[in-house]
């Protein structure tokens, strides 16, 4: 009986950690512009941070061959010819961590030409850490119960 109650409690706690709404920090949206240099097989800078609601402009400058930039989750992209630049503007209305990656075959390591855009707080990472912690606690509790 006690172990069933514990299991139910842990499942409820897991659901709260995974899905409970979190307060978003109130930051006024801004226009943010980044110049990103693209070369085989890296972006510079490769990690971008913006606030949720910001209008983001990415100026992609290709320094060697044709490169693209596709943002996972936003489904927007831009391509730049060698030595040229191209601009992509979108509103960062979804929070979390998103990979951006080259969407024009640019050479052998093309599938791994990746950058990272963080919009607001990467809540999913923190939720996952919470779930992992809960998992360890639950396994240890079950161990103690058996003992």
């Amino acid at each position: 009986m006690q172990s069933r109650f514990l299991l139910l409690f842990l499942i409820m706690a897991g659901l709260v950690v995974a899905f409970a709404p979190l307060p978003a920090p109130a930051v006024a949206p801004q226009a943010r512009t980044f110049r990103i240099d693209a070369r085989q097989y890296a972006y510079s800078p490769s990690e971008l941070k913006v606030n949720q609601g910001d209008t983001v402009t990415l100026q992609l400058v290709s320094t060697d061959v044709v490169h693209g930039l596709y943002v996972d989750g936003y489904d927007v992209s831009v391509e730049a010819d060698p030595g040229q630049s191209a601009t992509l503007t979108f509103t960062a209305n979804k929070s979390g961590s998103f990979r951006f990656r080259c969407n024009v075959t640019c050479g052998a390591m093309h599938p791994f030409m990746i950058g990272k855009l963080t919009v607001g707080t990467n809540n999913w990472l923190y939720r996952s850490v919470g779930l992992a912690f809960l998992a360890v606690v639950s396994v240890n509790l079950s161990l103690k119960q058996k003992a």
């Binding site: 070369r39 097989y41 890296a42 490769s46 030409m113 990746i114 950058g115």
Partner: peptide, 9 residues
């Protein structure tokens, strides 16, 4: 899968 170009190089 990370964003670090120097590791890929």
């Amino acid at each position: 899968l990370g964003p670090w170009g120097m590791f890929k190089d």
